[in-house]
């Protein structure tokens, strides 16, 4: 009963980074409790190629479910497999706190009639329970729970555990579907990457926004360059800028536009009028670049640079590129 299961999420035949985080987390627990890590790798034909990588991150056993019916996410069939497997005796199971992970962990818990912990940022195992922390109240409060269920089903917030290599045997075992995996009620008919790589403002973890300080529409290129350097960033704008037609109205952030709260918000040449602040002040980290050191935006910002956006942005874009290349 001390083995730990890690569900390694895949998409379109690719292993996701979150899939390594769950294995790393499981490894950490198993090392403390003396159990083994069993990683589950499910997908269409060819998915088994990722088994080695899971082993490198600490899987003692890689349970491979390779089947046409799992090329797309197959929630009901996976639930059946995992509930059966977990029923055979595990201390815990880790899932990613992703759209699919949230779906799957809840299904498995429901099937097993167990409580579970969602979006966990911290966990500590003891003999008969797990103390977990997960955010609540739109991330303004940390909630600490005691999860007494066994196995303890946990979905892990991205970044709570960073993937670390810790090579183990990674013996590959085939995992068979339970029943006919195509005879499900819920069917995913298509999985596709978001079009054009353009990230919606509401979803983007990083937003680079520009204001009148950019002086003219053409200079938004500097903002777009910085967004491209981040890779996961969307471009936003102030009302003054969208009113002037420099950017489409759909890019507007503020009281009358989109209300956003990304992990990082970079305000470029934005003075910080109430209209704008109302739409972004709940962002986790705010960076402001403005040449007027009296600009209200600096009161809302965590970090500020007083300077001309035309000078600072190209330098910042370069630095971000280097930082990301190094990471």
């Amino acid at each position: 009963m001390t083995n730990i299961l890690a569900f390694s999420e895949t998409r379109l035949g690719e292993l996701r980074r979150a899939g390594l985080e769950t294995v790393t987390a499981a490894r950490r627990v198993a090392d403390a409790t003396g159990g083994q890590v069993h990683a589950v790798l499910a997908g269409g034909p060819g998915i088994a190629q990722h088994a080695a990588k899971l082993a490198a991150h600490g899987a003692d056993v890689v349970l491979v479910l390779e089947h046409d019916a799992f090329a797309n996410y197959n929630p009901e069939a996976l639930t059946a497999v995992l509930a059966a497997r977990l029923g055979s005796g595990y201390r815990a199971a880790f899932f990613a706190a992703s759209a699919l992970g949230h779906d799957l962990v809840a299904r498995v818990a429901a099937r097993m009639k167990l409580a579970y912990a969602s979006d966990v940022t911290e966990f500590a195992f003891s003999a008969d329970s797990v103390a977990v922390a997960h955010p609540g109240y739109t991330n303004k409060i940390v909630q600490r729970f005691v999860l007494k269920a066994n196995p303890a089903l946990i979905s892990l917030r991205a970044g709570a555990v960073l993937p670390a290599e810790n090579a183990k045997a990674g013996a590959v075992e085939a995992l068979a579907p339970v029943g006919d995996p195509t005879a499900t009620r819920v069917k995913v008919t298509l999985t596709e990457k978001a079009a054009g790589g353009k990230i919606d403002l509401g979803e983007a973890p990083v937003i680079i926004a520009g204001g009148r300080g950019l002086k003219e529409a053409a200079n938004f290129k500097l903002v777009e360059d910085l967004a491209a350097a981040f890779g996961n960033a969307a471009v936003g704008a102030t009302r003054a800028v969208t009113d002037d037609g420099w950017r489409p109205h759909s890019d507007q952030i503020g009281q009358t536009g989109r209300l956003v709260s990304p992990d990082l918000y970079v305000a470029c040449g934005i003075s910080g009028a109430i209209q704008h602040l109302a739409g972004m002040r709940t962002s986790k980290t705010i960076v402001a670049i403005n040449k007027d050191k009296e600009a209200p935006i600096f009161k809302a910002a965590d970090y500020g640079i007083v300077g001309d956006v035309m000078d600072v942005l190209p330098a910042l874009t370069e630095a971000v590129k280097q930082a990301r290349a190094g990471a």
């Binding site: 910080g272 009028a273 109430i274 602040l277 209200p296 009161k299």
Partner: peptide, 9 residues
């Protein structure tokens, strides 16, 4: 409200 919350006001 403006006088209370808007930094310029």
């Amino acid at each position: 409200c403006m006088g209370s919350f808007d930094d310029r006001a």
